[in-house]
Design a protein around this nucleic acid. Structure first.
Lengths: 341, 341
DNA sequence: CCTCCGGATGTAAACGATTACATTTTGGTC
DNA sequence: GACCAAAATGTAATCGTTTACATCCGGAGG
């Protein structure tokens, strides 16, 4: 590997001068600069990021710790994060599939000295209770429960979104409304369930546990849950799936069983993934600006990295809105979408 | 930030001893070890990864350079990469949305000193022509054209998969078979197109440019392309979409226009994303083990990092296989899948 | 002609760890 | 108790940079 010393030697200057050329301190004579650049190009020299960040104490990298995440949600989130990070000249160090507390702590420690801050998405662990992590490392929670206000966090409007979807179903005249719940122990799941129940109560409809079936955010889970619901007596006339994947699984189950959507069964999802509008019938959903979620989280983190004002930790929510398509609205709704912020 | 020196001072030993405790050289007396661990825990000390990798000359990190990638493909690929990397104790540094050569080179330089090797997916740029990158940095190409054998690469069996799908359509009696092409200039696109044409020729069917419509790998693109095809005279009886997203867009277009699938129009996709089986009708596709693709690429890269045998660069392909569902096969095919390696 | 100043460059000390080598301690053997 | 190997620990160089400080040099001002 060719280092700054090799360049210095060949260009017949000191390493300091070479360093000054590459670190942008605009203080080296144009002639020397040219000479150094030539030598560097010939040698294929590139500054060593690790060494650089050791002395400058900035890695220009943010760590991203995620749980098991699938499909669209994951890719959009990363995209948002990468876009915002790159805009600020930051890289992202990604670590996936962290479930329990010890794994998270382990991953965070591994990141010490490699990142300037961490984005942590931990829907199962109350991240505040993380104890054994490097001190002074800025952290922003994404879509996670954060008991107090001890830490920055960015989440989505799960509660409002779910409540709006269920209110929409109610407004269509449905009274027997089921929910296919998200993965157990998950923060988003819990909030969406809460929104569902609140909407029912607000309309004076009693909340029945029999209409709350378990799900796991996968198509297969939604499919299985839908089969259960078909057997219920009385059979619900509408179902709210806690995410689109499950809604899609449910749609296919209803189709197989000859249950017509939306006539016999209205179906609403959550997330509004790109595919939702291409379903048959097109799926009503709660739109989540996932990409923006990632961006906002990064912005917040960069903020925390910049100034050490340990004081003002904020809890921020990105807005969701209802997107009504045919899976809930019947033929009455025109094919262009009705949205409702 | 607390460093190894702080721990050494408080534990009343030298930094060397502390280092030995944390780097696993099992040579420190149990009592000293305990004392050091206690102090470290009290101080919340974590070794500084950057400093460590500077002297050991290993970052235990691999860089991942990707183009604009969406949905399932992206998330599965990253998952595969992360799984394999973590298994070997490696982290991944991700950088997205690199299009042209200069962006790629820039990103690779930025990674110098932060990674031990790079996974590069560059479907548009002939990566071999990359010149201005750090010397000696192991690289493995993923799903990219690699002219000669100067570099390791892992791709998928685009050609075979596409040919098999089109052969399947032919075997069902179709003669007017259209293709919705992938993004222009894309390696996978080109290979799948080649497979399509070869299958036609093998069956003695003439290749007609009018049946090759442009696409871009998105649902909207597939939708638009399908509308075009409906207008063709004679109208094709089958269409092969170069990926599932486009196939799904096409399905929805056919549905809207009252073109029955598969009776009036058979539809085949590529990728076999999880949602494919939940479409109406369930979508026939070419299964791609995306996760495995990522894993294999990492394994290959770790190999290259381990031994400096610059000699034997290999080109590897992960196998695809046909998954036949109702979108091509009509009601004749039972609901459990027919697969065909 | 001397001073002084500023621009260009060099010298050397960090950054936070690892590790070869040197040194000290320990404990077993005679 | 002396001796010696082995075990435990310390010393200091090193990784590839950045940067405060020192140095050098030429020219402007007096």
């Amino acid at each position: 590997m060719v280092t700054i010393k090799d360049v210095a030697r060949q260009a017949d200057v000191s390493v300091a001068t070479v360093s000054r050329v590459f670190s942008g301190a605009n203080v080296v004579s144009t002639e020397t600069t040219r000479k150094i650049r030539d030598v560097a190009a010939a040698l294929r020299y590139t500054p060593h990021g690790g060494a650089r960040s050791l002395i400058t104490r900035k890695t220009n990298t943010i760590g991203v710790l995620l749980p098991d995440l699938y499909g669209e949600f994951f890719s959009e989130l990363i995209r948002g994060i990468d876009v915002a990070a790159r805009r600020a000249g930051f890289h992202i160090l990604v670590s996936l599939s962290h479930a329990d507390r010890s794994e998270i702590e382990e991953a965070m420690r591994a990141m010490r000295g490699r990142v300037d801050g961490v984005l942590l998405m931990s829907p199962h662990v109350d991240a505040e209770s993380l104890s054994n992590i490097p001190a002074n490392l800025p952290v922003v929670l994404v879509c996670s429960a954060s008991g107090g206000s001890e830490v920055d966090s960015v989440t989505i409007q799960n509660f409002r979104g779910a409540r709006a979807m269920v209110a929409h179903l109610i407004s269509l005249g449905h009274r027997q409304i089921a929910i296919i719940k998200g993965a157990a122990g998950n923060y988003d799941s819990a909030e969406r369930l809460r929104g569902y129940r609140t909407a029912l109560r607000d309309a004076g409809i009693s909340v029945e546990r029999a209409l709350e079936v378990d799900g796991d955010f996968t198509e297969a889970g939604g499919h299985a849950a839908a089969l259960q619901l078909i057997g219920r007596n009385p059979r619900p006339t509408a179902v709210f799936a806690a995410n689109d994947c499950m809604a899609i699984g449910a749609l296919s189950a209803f189709r197989e069983q000859g249950v017509r959507v939306p006539d016999e069964m209205a179906v609403g999802g959550f997330d509004d993934i790109p595919l939702a509008r291409y379903m048959d019938p097109p799926l009503s959903s709660v739109h989540v600006p996932i990409c923006e979620l990632g961006e906002r989280a990064v912005v917040r983190l960069l903020d925390a990295i910049g100034c050490k004002n340990a004081g003002d930790h904020k809890r921020e929510r990105v807005a969701t809105h209802l997107v009504i398509r045919r899976s809930t609205a019947g033929e009455a709704v025109p094919s262009h979408e009705v949205t409702n912020a």
